[in-house]
Simulated scan of single mutants.
Amino acid sequence: MPTATNRGVSLHYETDGDGPTVVFVGDVGYGAWLWGWHYDALAGPYETVVWDLRGTGDSDAPAGPYDVPTLAADLEAVLADHGVGSAHLVGAGLGGMIALRYAHEYNRARTLTLYCTAASGDAVDADALRSLSLDAGDTASLDGAFSPALREADPALVERVTEWRRADDATGEAFAAQAAAATGFEAPPLYEVTQPTEVYYGVEDPVVPVEAAASLADDLPRGTGEAVEGRHCCYVEHATVLTDRLTAFLDEHTDHEV
């Protein structure tokens, strides 16, 4: 289990596969389980990297406040520790914000895939974001993440997700510090983020309004946007379709030469 360090904070990450690197950047509170579907599908033709944000999983949980520039520096520490020269970034929510900042400040990002991300924390519904925390309860905290249809149709999946969350999710002060990083975010000048970017957003996402995510896609020089049925974790609920889309996007911008 590799570990990187940024200013004394230990950051856990895991890798799999062999090929061009794809790095997954998590959302507020959620552990690495969030990327299980994408990770398994891509590992092989791509090298996949998943890391625990500070406050989550096996990474350190220093006292807040946290901010996106610091979290982007954490990502740089992980990639430098692993010796990554360039990487495709896939981020959700806060992770999408981190990816935007990282792409602007550092030189390793090749493409961006952003799920349920806004260019400004002012667009994020702070109450809806807090309701996603396990502190709100196992069942209640899934309401804003997954559609009722999924939860009713696949209770076994919901049970597995709940077990994974209990093991790895950030709660309490760590969740609050990550949430504050998201709500306090202001994107760098979007015209300067020139990497090819795809933005996907849930049509019923209570945390990031459709208008905010669509506006982000429109304002990126090489951005495209697409609405997806579902709520804040629509990319998990429709992982099969979106993983296929992600694979096609990565293949378009990758020569598969390591």
Rank of each mutant, 00 (worst) to 15 (best):
P2G: 10
A4W: 01
T5N: 08
N6L: 13
G8P: 06
V9Y: 06
V9E: 08
Y13F: 15
E14K: 04
G19F: 07
P20M: 10
T21I: 11
V25F: 01
V25D: 07
G26Y: 00
V28R: 01
V28F: 00
G31Y: 01
W33K: 00
G36F: 08
H38G: 02
Y39E: 15
D40P: 03
W51I: 04
G57Q: 09
V68K: 02
E76I: 06
A80V: 02
V84H: 03
V84I: 13
V84R: 11
A87R: 06
A87Y: 07
G93V: 05
G93P: 07
L94W: 04
G95L: 06
L100M: 07
R101L: 05
R101P: 05
H104D: 10
R108K: 15
A109H: 06
L112S: 08
A119T: 11
D122K: 14
A123D: 15
A123Q: 10
V124C: 04
S131D: 15
S131N: 12
L134M: 15
A136H: 11
T139G: 12
A140G: 01
S141P: 08
S141C: 11
S141A: 11
L150A: 04
R151T: 10
E152F: 01
A156V: 14
V161D: 00
T162S: 05
W164F: 14
R165H: 00
R166F: 07
G172N: 09
E173F: 00
A176D: 15
A180V: 01
A181H: 05
P189I: 05
P189A: 10
Q195I: 08
Q195H: 15
Y201V: 08
P209E: 04
E211H: 14
A214C: 00
A214S: 02
L216S: 01
L216K: 03
L216A: 04
P221I: 02
G223I: 13
E229V: 12
H232K: 09
T240F: 12
L242V: 12
A248L: 11
F249D: 07
E252I: 04
T254F: 02
D255L: 00
D255A: 14
E257F: 02
